[in-house]
């Protein structure tokens, strides 16, 4: 589904450019949940930004469903790939109603039967039509994140990029959102690429996890190996030990 080969990216700076991704190789199968875990500055979000087209000028090869990303326009990309952001407030336009937010992707694509699609997407994320006339600031954090997820799935994409989707939420709301993501994954046959700093959250959702440190992938481990402590790299062990110490 997603194949990333020797991806490198230099962030252009004012004096000299800085390498923030170095020789990244990932291959994600259809329907898989793949996690990227690491600390701030490790480059995990940068990979998503390369995929989403926010970072231009990367080197290497990225292919989605066998098609090279460099040759796909943003407009074509939007049919296969959508993104959910960390901050549920910043991800929704503060002066658009929920109706307008969900209507926009349909209007851009010029699709018909808009109202049915909007209602279905809302229902998929556990909201009802009473939310339609509201503005984002009238919703709680968890409800905003649900709307953001509804916007991501409304175009029926195959891939969803999740950028720390629960780290701005309270733990009880985090549980609701994680459950929602699990059930959507099952119902819509989605492929997830999720970024988080929390190994517990990643391991809950993802079957395989790539551990990142200073722009490189140090290790790719399966969930089972994580649970059994079957990890090779010292840095993975630090993260794992920390996560276990908190349980």
């Amino acid at each position: 589904m997603i194949s990333i080969q020797s991806l490198s990216f230099d962030m252009p700076g004012s004096t000299k450019s800085k390498r923030i991704l170095n020789d990244i190789n990932i291959s994600i199968g259809k329907g898989e949940c793949f996690g990227l875990v690491g600390e701030s500055g490790s480059g995990k979000t940068s990979i998503l930004k390369c995929l989403a087209g926010q970072f231009q000028g990367w080197e290497g090869a990225i292919a989605i469903q066998g098609k090279s990303l460099a040759e796909t326009s943003l407009k074509e990309r939007s049919n296969t790939m959508q993104m959910v952001f960390q901050d549920p407030y910043g991800a929704l336009h503060p002066r658009h109603t929920i109706r307008k937010i969900l209507n926009e992707p349909l209007a851009i694509k010029g699709l018909s039967d808009k109202s049915e699609r909007i209602l279905k997407a809302l229902k998929d994320v556990g909201l009802d039509e009473t939310f339609l006339p509201r503005y984002p600031h009238q919703l709680s954090g968890g409800q905003r994140q649900r709307v953001a997820i509804a916007r991501a799935i409304i175009l029926d994409p195959d891939i969803i990029l999740l950028d720390e989707p629960t780290s701005a939420l309270d733990v009880s709301v985090q549980a609701e959102i994680l459950n929602l993501l699990t059930s959507l994954h099952r119902r819509h046959q989605l492929t997830y690429l999720m970024v988080s700093h929390d190994l517990g959250v990643i391991a809950h959702l993802c079957e395989r996890v790539a551990v990142m440190k200073s722009g490189e992938i140090v290790e790719v481990v399966s969930r089972d190996d994580l649970v059994e402590g079957n990890v090779a790299h010292a840095y993975t062990k630090v993260l794992l030990q920390h996560a276990l110490s908190r349980e």
């Binding site: 910043g90 336009h93 851009i108």
Partner: peptide, 26 residues
């Protein structure tokens, strides 16, 4: 570079649409 503008671009919104529907409003 705000998230909702990025989200609109990811949905394939044209520059014109982003300017009129998202940025001007703010």
């Amino acid at each position: 570079n705000s998230d909702y503008v990025v989200a609109a671009q990811l949905q394939g919104a044209s520059a014109c649409r982003v300017l009129f529907h998202y940025i001007s409003l703010m």
